[in-house]
Nucleic acid binder design. Structure first.
Lengths: 143, 143
DNA sequence: CCGTATCCGGATGGATACTG
DNA sequence: CAGTATCCATCCGGATACGG
């Protein structure tokens, strides 16, 4: 997919509002290749990625250990999610050619920089979880 | 769905690490009803929600205005996403019974509290977008 | 132990047409 | 203008079985 030559806009200062950032993406036609929400966050939003990052936030883990930490993930989805994270440079995979083989996963330095903003969002979710559930109940009661 | 009587754990201080938070959810069996990642963030992770919030971060908007701001969203998906946000108490919907009718959407106070952590995550995505794209290219080159 | 391969059901989401 | 209704293709993700 011969990438466009248009370079991404210079990154804005950290305190830039969401609304201002949106205006920039909009000028680029919300092209998914230049819209970080679509190109990066959509990935974090899938069913398992955030949970896996939370596990790896605790340190290097083996494949089986991650699977035990998230009881209802299948090997298929765990492998695929880890591959995607590796592909994006957030997770490192190290294979030890022992028998039976063992494979260790850990966050890369890039992956570690994600922890702070992600933890802030998760903290928001925890703090407001009761309010959100209350809103849902109220909404249902009106229908 | 007669809700369980087990109350959610008291919320942890803001600086608590992801790994520590995960341990708490895990003790509850990662039950989706008590895991904010699953009950709240999964919702934010769907295809349009974050973009819609970014638009509303700029102020109250009418249905048509939101649709024009996000060129490739269908009316169907916009309606559905807005309903979900309204249901969770993040967005308010106000109908003016004019002819033709006009409907305004805006963030609720609860919705506004989401802007700061969300903007931080988006800022991370913007800043590291080039590094992530580079990692993808590297990954492809090895296969 | 750490995967891959295959199959398949259900959810997601786009296109289109219609309504108050 | 702001939806709803319907149909339909695609994709996500679970179950199972097999391989290095």
């Amino acid at each position: 997919m011969a990438e466009s030559i248009v370079s991404a806009p210079a990154s804005l200062p950290a305190e830039t509002s969401l609304a201002e950032r949106f205006a920039v993406w909009q000028d680029l036609g919300l092209d998914p290749h230049h819209c970080p929400v679509r190109d990066v966050l959509d990935h974090l939003g899938d069913k398992w990625t955030t949970l896996i990052i939370a596990v790896l936030a605790g340190g290097t883990r083996r494949f089986g250990a991650i699977q035990r930490a998230i009881p209802d993930i299948s090997k298929r989805m765990l492998t695929q999610s880890l591959r995607d994270l590796e592909r994006d440079g957030l997770v490192a995979r190290r294979v030890y050619p022992t028998s039976p083989p063992s494979v260790e996963y850990s966050l890369t330095p890039l992956g570690e920089t994600l922890l702070a903003p992600l933890a802030a969002l998760v903290a928001w979710a925890e703090r407001n979880h009761p309010a959100i559930r209350a809103a849902r109940t109220r909404f249902l009661a009106e229908a």
